[in-house]
Protein backbone atom coordinates (compact mmCIF):
# COMPACT_ATOMS: atom_id res chain seq x y z
CA UNK A 1 0.00 0.00 0.00
CA UNK A 2 1.26 3.45 -0.85
CA UNK A 3 2.08 5.67 2.11
CA UNK A 4 -0.31 8.62 2.42
CA UNK A 5 1.52 11.57 4.02
CA UNK A 6 -0.27 13.09 6.99
CA UNK A 7 -1.60 16.66 6.85
CA UNK A 8 1.23 17.72 9.17
CA UNK A 9 3.80 16.26 6.75
CA UNK A 10 2.10 17.98 3.78
CA UNK A 11 2.28 21.27 5.69
CA UNK A 12 5.98 20.70 6.33
CA UNK A 13 6.62 19.99 2.63
CA UNK A 14 4.69 23.09 1.56
CA UNK A 15 6.55 25.28 4.06
CA UNK A 16 9.96 23.99 2.96
CA UNK A 17 9.08 24.51 -0.71
CA UNK A 18 8.06 28.09 0.07
CA UNK A 19 11.38 28.73 1.80
CA UNK A 20 13.32 27.20 -1.11
CA UNK A 21 11.56 29.42 -3.69
CA UNK A 22 12.22 32.47 -1.52
CA UNK A 23 15.98 31.72 -1.32
CA UNK A 24 16.26 31.22 -5.08
CA UNK A 25 14.55 34.56 -5.72
CA UNK A 26 16.78 36.29 -3.16
CA UNK A 27 19.93 34.83 -4.70
CA UNK A 28 18.86 35.92 -8.21
CA UNK A 29 18.07 39.44 -7.04
CA UNK A 30 21.34 39.91 -5.17
CA UNK A 31 23.36 38.53 -8.11
CA UNK A 32 21.65 40.98 -10.45
CA UNK A 33 22.34 43.92 -8.13
CA UNK A 34 26.05 43.04 -7.68
CA UNK A 35 26.49 42.40 -11.41
CA UNK A 36 24.90 45.70 -12.39
CA UNK A 37 26.96 47.63 -9.84
CA UNK A 38 30.17 46.04 -11.15
CA UNK A 39 29.30 46.73 -14.80
CA UNK A 40 28.31 50.32 -14.08
CA UNK A 41 31.38 50.83 -11.88
CA UNK A 42 33.82 49.60 -14.52
CA UNK A 43 32.29 50.90 -17.74
CA UNK A 44 31.38 54.20 -16.06
CA UNK A 45 34.95 54.80 -14.87
CA UNK A 46 36.63 57.84 -16.39
CA UNK A 47 39.40 55.79 -18.04
CA UNK A 48 37.20 52.95 -19.33
CA UNK A 49 37.42 53.90 -23.00
CA UNK A 50 41.21 53.83 -23.00
CA UNK A 51 41.36 50.56 -21.01
CA UNK A 52 38.87 49.02 -23.42
CA UNK A 53 41.02 50.01 -26.34
CA UNK A 54 44.31 48.75 -24.95
CA UNK A 55 43.09 45.56 -23.23
CA UNK A 56 40.03 44.45 -25.21
CA UNK A 57 40.87 45.27 -28.82
CA UNK A 58 39.28 42.58 -31.03
CA UNK A 59 41.63 43.26 -33.95
CA UNK A 60 44.75 42.75 -31.82
CA UNK A 61 43.22 39.58 -30.37
CA UNK A 62 42.62 38.06 -33.80
CA UNK A 63 46.02 39.17 -35.07
CA UNK A 64 48.06 37.47 -32.37
CA UNK A 65 45.81 34.48 -31.64
CA UNK A 66 47.70 32.05 -33.95
CA UNK A 67 51.09 32.80 -32.34
CA UNK A 68 49.66 32.55 -28.84
CA UNK A 69 47.96 29.25 -29.68
CA UNK A 70 51.23 27.92 -31.00
CA UNK A 71 52.90 28.96 -27.76
CA UNK A 72 50.10 27.34 -25.78
CA UNK A 73 50.86 24.04 -27.47
CA UNK A 74 54.34 24.27 -25.95
CA UNK A 75 52.76 25.00 -22.54
CA UNK A 76 50.56 21.94 -22.89
CA UNK A 77 53.48 19.66 -23.76
CA UNK A 78 55.50 21.12 -20.88
CA UNK A 79 52.59 20.63 -18.52
CA UNK A 80 52.32 16.94 -19.33
CA UNK A 81 56.07 16.33 -19.01
CA UNK A 82 56.52 18.47 -15.87
CA UNK A 83 53.44 17.09 -14.11
CA UNK A 84 54.46 13.47 -14.77
CA UNK A 85 58.04 13.93 -13.69
CA UNK A 86 57.24 16.16 -10.69
CA UNK A 87 54.69 13.61 -9.41
CA UNK A 88 57.22 10.80 -9.84
CA UNK A 89 59.96 12.79 -8.10
CA UNK A 90 57.61 13.77 -5.26
CA UNK A 91 56.55 10.17 -4.69
CA UNK A 92 60.14 8.93 -4.60
CA UNK A 93 61.22 11.67 -2.16
CA UNK A 94 58.22 11.00 0.09
CA UNK A 95 58.99 7.27 0.24
CA UNK A 96 62.67 7.97 0.95
CA UNK A 97 61.66 10.20 3.86
CA UNK A 98 59.74 7.32 5.49
CA UNK A 99 62.76 4.97 5.59
CA UNK A 100 63.86 4.19 9.12
CA UNK A 101 67.18 3.01 10.46
CA UNK A 102 70.64 4.57 10.63
CA UNK A 103 71.72 3.19 7.24
CA UNK A 104 69.23 5.47 5.53
CA UNK A 105 70.16 8.59 7.50
CA UNK A 106 72.02 10.29 4.59
CA UNK A 107 69.19 9.54 2.16
CA UNK A 108 66.61 10.80 4.62
CA UNK A 109 68.64 13.93 5.41
CA UNK A 110 69.09 14.74 1.72
CA UNK A 111 65.39 14.22 0.97
CA UNK A 112 64.40 16.38 3.94
CA UNK A 113 66.87 19.10 3.01
CA UNK A 114 65.54 19.10 -0.53
CA UNK A 115 61.88 19.51 0.48
CA UNK A 116 62.80 22.26 2.95
CA UNK A 117 64.89 24.34 0.55
CA UNK A 118 62.88 24.01 -2.65
CA UNK A 119 59.57 24.74 -0.99
CA UNK A 120 61.03 27.99 0.28
CA UNK A 121 62.82 29.05 -2.89
CA UNK A 122 60.72 31.17 -5.31
CA UNK A 123 60.22 29.39 -8.64
CA UNK A 124 61.46 32.43 -10.61
CA UNK A 125 64.83 32.27 -8.88
CA UNK A 126 65.13 28.53 -9.53
CA UNK A 127 64.35 29.08 -13.21
CA UNK A 128 67.01 31.79 -13.46
CA UNK A 129 69.55 29.62 -11.64
CA UNK A 130 68.89 26.62 -13.87
CA UNK A 131 68.42 28.36 -17.22
CA UNK A 132 71.24 30.90 -16.92
CA UNK A 133 73.48 29.45 -14.20
CA UNK A 134 73.98 25.95 -15.57
CA UNK A 135 74.86 27.01 -19.16
CA UNK A 136 77.26 29.48 -17.54
CA UNK A 137 79.34 26.53 -16.37
CA UNK A 138 80.10 25.83 -20.05
CA UNK A 139 79.98 22.09 -19.59
CA UNK A 140 79.78 19.88 -22.64
CA UNK A 141 76.32 18.56 -23.44
CA UNK A 142 74.41 21.21 -21.45
CA UNK A 143 70.78 20.72 -22.45
CA UNK A 144 68.61 23.33 -24.12
CA UNK A 145 67.27 26.24 -22.02
CA UNK A 146 63.80 24.78 -22.50
CA UNK A 147 64.82 21.59 -20.71
CA UNK A 148 66.66 23.49 -17.99
CA UNK A 149 63.57 25.61 -17.36
CA UNK A 150 61.43 22.50 -17.26
CA UNK A 151 63.87 20.92 -14.80
CA UNK A 152 63.53 23.99 -12.54
CA UNK A 153 59.73 23.61 -12.54
CA UNK A 154 59.96 19.85 -11.88
CA UNK A 155 62.41 20.24 -9.01
CA UNK A 156 60.34 22.99 -7.37
CA UNK A 157 56.98 21.23 -7.71
CA UNK A 158 58.53 17.88 -6.76
CA UNK A 159 59.26 19.35 -3.32
CA UNK A 160 55.62 20.41 -2.81
CA UNK A 161 54.20 17.17 -4.12
CA UNK A 162 56.59 15.15 -1.91
CA UNK A 163 55.05 16.77 1.16
CA UNK A 164 51.54 16.01 -0.07
CA UNK A 165 52.48 12.38 -0.67
CA UNK A 166 54.15 12.20 2.74
CA UNK A 167 51.01 13.49 4.46
CA UNK A 168 49.09 10.75 2.65
CA UNK A 169 51.53 8.04 3.68
CA UNK A 170 51.41 9.16 7.30
CA UNK A 171 47.61 9.19 7.28
CA UNK A 172 47.50 5.42 6.70
CA UNK A 173 47.11 3.78 10.10
CA UNK A 174 50.17 1.79 11.32
CA UNK A 175 47.90 -1.23 11.87
CA UNK A 176 47.71 -1.54 8.08
CA UNK A 177 51.47 -2.05 7.95
CA UNK A 178 51.25 -4.51 10.87
CA UNK A 179 48.61 -6.48 8.99
CA UNK A 180 50.66 -6.54 5.80
CA UNK A 181 53.87 -7.51 7.60
CA UNK A 182 52.07 -10.22 9.59
CA UNK A 183 51.16 -11.84 6.26
CA UNK A 184 54.86 -12.06 5.40
CA UNK A 185 55.06 -9.05 3.08
CA UNK A 186 58.39 -7.20 3.19
CA UNK A 187 58.48 -3.47 3.98
CA UNK A 188 58.72 -2.45 0.29
CA UNK A 189 55.88 -4.83 -0.58
CA UNK A 190 53.73 -3.45 2.25
CA UNK A 191 54.49 0.09 1.02
CA UNK A 192 53.74 -0.74 -2.61
CA UNK A 193 50.56 -2.79 -2.21
CA UNK A 194 49.00 -1.54 1.03
CA UNK A 195 50.20 1.92 2.08
CA UNK A 196 50.78 3.82 -1.18
CA UNK A 197 47.47 2.91 -2.90
CA UNK A 198 45.56 4.18 0.14
CA UNK A 199 47.82 7.22 0.56
CA UNK A 200 47.55 8.31 -3.09
CA UNK A 201 43.78 7.90 -3.05
CA UNK A 202 43.49 10.09 0.02
CA UNK A 203 45.69 12.91 -1.28
CA UNK A 204 44.58 12.89 -4.91
CA UNK A 205 42.47 16.08 -4.47
CA UNK A 206 45.43 18.18 -3.19
CA UNK A 207 47.74 16.53 -5.75
CA UNK A 208 45.45 17.54 -8.59
CA UNK A 209 45.08 20.99 -7.11
CA UNK A 210 48.86 21.39 -7.19
CA UNK A 211 48.80 20.21 -10.80
CA UNK A 212 46.36 23.04 -11.61
CA UNK A 213 48.82 25.48 -10.02
CA UNK A 214 51.62 23.83 -12.02
CA UNK A 215 49.76 24.27 -15.29
CA UNK A 216 49.83 28.06 -14.97
CA UNK A 217 53.32 28.24 -13.47
CA UNK A 218 54.57 26.43 -16.57
CA UNK A 219 54.12 29.85 -18.18
CA UNK A 220 57.02 31.20 -16.12
CA UNK A 221 59.34 29.31 -18.45
CA UNK A 222 58.97 32.32 -20.77
CA UNK A 223 61.43 34.08 -18.43
CA UNK A 224 64.14 31.74 -19.68
CA UNK A 225 63.45 32.52 -23.34
CA UNK A 226 61.35 29.78 -24.96
CA UNK A 227 58.34 31.15 -26.82
CA UNK A 228 55.31 29.84 -24.97
CA UNK A 229 51.87 31.47 -24.92
CA UNK A 230 52.91 34.20 -22.48
CA UNK A 231 56.08 34.98 -24.41
CA UNK A 232 54.12 35.10 -27.68
CA UNK A 233 51.63 37.48 -26.08
CA UNK A 234 54.47 39.62 -24.74
CA UNK A 235 55.95 39.94 -28.23
CA UNK A 236 52.55 41.04 -29.52
CA UNK A 237 52.20 43.56 -26.70
CA UNK A 238 55.64 45.00 -27.48
CA UNK A 239 54.92 45.30 -31.21
CA UNK A 240 51.56 47.07 -31.05
CA UNK A 241 51.76 48.68 -27.59
CA UNK A 242 48.44 46.99 -26.83
CA UNK A 243 47.79 44.67 -23.90
CA UNK A 244 45.06 42.61 -25.56
CA UNK A 245 47.35 39.61 -26.33
CA UNK A 246 47.85 39.14 -22.56
CA UNK A 247 44.11 38.95 -22.07
CA UNK A 248 43.91 36.39 -24.89
CA UNK A 249 46.66 34.29 -23.29
CA UNK A 250 44.97 34.59 -19.90
CA UNK A 251 41.63 33.41 -21.25
CA UNK A 252 43.33 30.49 -22.99
CA UNK A 253 45.06 29.49 -19.73
CA UNK A 254 41.73 29.51 -17.91
CA UNK A 255 40.18 27.37 -20.66
CA UNK A 256 43.12 24.99 -20.42
CA UNK A 257 42.69 24.72 -16.64
CA UNK A 258 38.94 24.13 -16.71
CA UNK A 259 39.00 20.39 -17.52
CA UNK A 260 41.65 19.77 -14.86
CA UNK A 261 39.70 21.80 -12.30
CA UNK A 262 36.61 19.80 -13.22
CA UNK A 263 38.44 16.53 -12.66
CA UNK A 264 39.79 17.82 -9.32
CA UNK A 265 36.30 18.74 -8.10
CA UNK A 266 34.95 15.37 -9.17
CA UNK A 267 37.74 13.44 -7.45
CA UNK A 268 37.37 15.54 -4.28
CA UNK A 269 33.66 14.92 -4.19
CA UNK A 270 34.14 11.21 -4.70
CA UNK A 271 36.81 11.06 -1.98
CA UNK A 272 34.53 12.90 0.45
CA UNK A 273 31.69 10.53 -0.33
CA UNK A 274 33.90 7.49 0.22
CA UNK A 275 35.11 8.95 3.51
CA UNK A 276 31.57 9.48 4.70
CA UNK A 277 30.63 5.94 3.76
CA UNK A 278 33.02 4.83 6.50
CA UNK A 279 36.18 2.80 6.25
Amino acid sequence: MKHQPSTRQLERIAYRRGRAIRSVLLAAASTAVVGTLLAVGITGAPGWDRVKQSFFDPDAAVKYLPEILEGLWLNLKLLVVCATLALTLGLIIAVLRTLRGPVFFPVRALATGYTYSFRGLPLIIVIYLFAFGIPGLRLNGTPDVLWLGAAAIIVTYGAYLAEVFRAGIESVHPSQISAARSLGLSYPQAMRHVVLPQAVRRVSPPLLNDTVALQKDVGLISLAGPIDAIRAAQIGVAQDANFTPYIVAGVLFVLLALPLIGVTDWVTLRAARRQNAGT
Binding site: S175, Q176, S178, A179, A180, S182, L183, G184, L185, Q189, H193, V194, P197, Q198, R201, T279
Partner: peptide, 26 residues
Protein backbone atom coordinates in the same frame (compact mmCIF):
# COMPACT_ATOMS: atom_id res chain seq x y z
CA UNK B 1 49.18 -16.17 11.08
CA UNK B 2 47.96 -13.23 13.15
CA UNK B 3 44.39 -11.97 13.36
CA UNK B 4 43.74 -8.58 14.93
CA UNK B 5 40.98 -7.25 17.14
CA UNK B 6 40.15 -4.55 14.58
CA UNK B 7 40.36 -6.94 11.54
CA UNK B 8 42.79 -4.62 9.69
CA UNK B 9 41.52 -5.64 6.27
CA UNK B 10 42.92 -3.53 3.43
CA UNK B 11 40.06 -1.11 2.64
CA UNK B 12 41.19 -0.43 -0.95
CA UNK B 13 41.06 -4.09 -1.96
CA UNK B 14 38.15 -6.43 -2.51
CA UNK B 15 37.69 -9.39 -0.18
CA UNK B 16 39.25 -11.65 -2.80
CA UNK B 17 42.28 -9.38 -3.27
CA UNK B 18 42.76 -9.12 0.49
CA UNK B 19 43.00 -12.89 0.68
CA UNK B 20 45.19 -13.45 -2.39
CA UNK B 21 47.70 -10.64 -1.68
CA UNK B 22 50.14 -12.74 0.36
CA UNK B 23 49.81 -15.98 -1.64
CA UNK B 24 50.53 -14.09 -4.87
CA UNK B 25 53.15 -11.58 -3.67
CA UNK B 26 54.90 -13.59 -0.95
Amino acid sequence: GLVFQSYNLFPHMTVLDNITLAPVRV
